[in-house]
């Protein structure tokens, strides 16, 4: 069951109330940005995805049914956009090369209060270093399950993949990251 303020905002936004939609954007944009940033490892790309996500939300809000959790629906739109963008990046071969020697990865693992110290660029480099050779599907599943902590059932709804496919992709992604960690 959704909280009533959120439901009210959705209903008002469906009636093309821009002020209500603005509140709706403010409510979840950080989460969408977080997903996009972890997937794409680039601030500008992540912001573009957030913008594109909310444009789609605005356009298709009348198709949204309250049986589905709003955040799941939002994640579904954002993750599809991230997946498409990631595929395009891989196809063009524009994958950013990370120099692991310059990156103080051991410091990152050792520091307990790391969250206050790490800035976006460092975080992007760490994620990139660990996931650079994952397929877009593996990266999507890994990000949703291990970084965004979504349940498998929710990932099924978000990605449209079956539970078996999610598990197999997740297994491969984890294996790859473990191997990377062994080498470090």
């Amino acid at each position: 069951m959704q909280e009533s303020p959120l439901t009210d905002l959705i209903i008002e936004s469906k009636q093309r109330n821009a002020a209500a939609f603005r509140k709706l954007v403010e409510m979840h944009q950080a989460r969408v940005y977080s997903l996009a940033f972890r997937m794409l490892c680039n601030e500008d790309d992540a912001k573009d995805v957030v913008q594109e996500t909310y444009i789609r939300v605005w356009k298709h809000l009348d198709q949204y049914k309250t049986e589905m959790k709003y955040t799941t629906w939002l994640y579904a739109i954002a993750s599809h956009l991230c997946y498409d963008r990631l595929k395009a990046i891989k196809r063009k071969g524009n994958v950013q090369q990370i120099d692991s020697e310059n990156l103080n990865f051991k410091f990152f693992l050792a520091d307990e209060n790391i969250e206050t110290a790490v800035i976006n660029s460092e975080l992007a480099k760490i994620i990139m270093l660990l996931t650079d050779e994952l397929t877009p599907k593996q990266k999507l599943v890994f990000t949703l399950r291990d970084l965004e902590c979504l349940e498998i059932v929710e990932i099924e709804t978000v990605t449209g993949l079956s539970a078996d496919k999610i598990k197999s992709n997740l297994y491969l992604a984890r294996q790859y990251i473990r191997k990377k960690l062994e080498k470090m």
Partner: peptide, 11 residues
Amino acid sequence: LVNKLNRINPQ
């Protein structure tokens, strides 16, 4: 690693 990445939210 996963726990840390989980805790660090991109700003």
